[in-house]
Computed example of a mutant assay.
Amino acid sequence: MRCLPFSAALYRELQRQGLDADTIWQDKSRFGRGPTWPRDGEHLEDDLRWLITVGVLRREVDGQGLTSRFRLTPLGRDLLEARQAELLQPPGWNDRLRQALRRRWPF
């Protein structure tokens, strides 16, 4: 949880309603976590896709299929409720290294 790339405010907002990447990108001060923020829209999408891969987020679906909006999954809600304090703690160097390795080689 300490290595999640966005603030708790984003996850709470995604639990309440779906957001698209552009909305997230435009509100860095609210959704950013610490000094790190994706350097461009492509990296933001990479972070969102990673959160989908690990099961925290999902793409919102409407009557016509997938949309560009994201929502919190049930697993994401459970993690947010059970471990919200961990989002406030900065990750250590070992946490960041482990996370980077998992993103590079997930299996």
Score class of each variant (00 low, 15 high):
73 T>E: 00
70 F>Q: 01
100 A>E: 08
11 Y>A: 00
107 F>K: 06
77 R>S: 11
46 D>H: 13
62 D>L: 05
21 A>H: 02
42 E>S: 14
99 Q>L: 06
74 P>C: 03
27 D>Y: 02
51 L>Q: 05
77 R>V: 03
85 A>L: 09
13 E>K: 02
43 H>I: 05
86 E>W: 13
32 G>L: 01
61 V>F: 05
28 K>C: 07
4 L>Q: 03
58 R>M: 04
77 R>A: 07
52 I>Q: 07
45 E>D: 12
36 T>K: 13
100 A>T: 15
24 I>S: 02
68 S>R: 14
64 Q>M: 10
41 G>S: 10
86 E>R: 08
29 S>F: 04
45 E>A: 13
49 R>V: 05
89 Q>W: 07
22 D>W: 02
87 L>R: 10
33 R>T: 09
77 R>M: 11
71 R>C: 14
81 E>G: 15
105 W>A: 11
26 Q>Y: 03
29 S>H: 09
13 E>N: 09
49 R>I: 06
104 R>M: 13
45 E>M: 10
107 F>W: 07
46 D>I: 01
62 D>W: 08
107 F>P: 00
16 R>A: 15
58 R>N: 03
9 A>E: 14
85 A>Y: 13
50 W>Y: 14
78 D>Q: 14
93 W>I: 13
75 L>A: 15
91 P>T: 11
107 F>N: 05
28 K>S: 07
47 D>E: 15
105 W>L: 13
19 L>P: 00
65 G>L: 11
3 C>F: 01
14 L>N: 01
48 L>P: 00
3 C>Q: 02
59 R>C: 05
21 A>I: 06
11 Y>W: 13
38 P>Y: 11
89 Q>K: 11
67 T>F: 05
95 D>G: 06
5 P>T: 05
22 D>F: 05
37 W>K: 09
97 L>P: 01
29 S>Q: 09
83 R>L: 13
8 A>C: 08
8 A>H: 11
7 S>A: 15
97 L>I: 15
83 R>N: 14
83 R>W: 14
62 D>S: 10
13 E>H: 06
95 D>H: 10
35 P>F: 08
66 L>Y: 13
95 D>R: 09
30 R>P: 06
96 R>W: 04
16 R>C: 08
81 E>C: 08
96 R>I: 11
39 R>F: 10
9 A>M: 07
57 L>H: 04
2 R>W: 00
38 P>T: 05
42 E>H: 10
64 Q>I: 04
91 P>I: 14
71 R>I: 12
8 A>T: 15
72 L>I: 07
90 P>M: 09
89 Q>P: 02
105 W>E: 04
56 V>G: 00
36 T>I: 12
3 C>W: 01
67 T>C: 05
90 P>G: 12
49 R>W: 06
75 L>C: 06
5 P>V: 07
18 G>W: 07
36 T>H: 13
64 Q>H: 11
97 L>E: 05
83 R>D: 12
92 G>R: 09
10 L>A: 06
3 C>E: 02
73 T>W: 01
102 R>V: 01
101 L>W: 12
89 Q>E: 15
19 L>A: 04
55 G>A: 04
80 L>C: 08
35 P>N: 08
25 W>T: 06
72 L>M: 12
87 L>S: 08
104 R>I: 04
8 A>N: 09
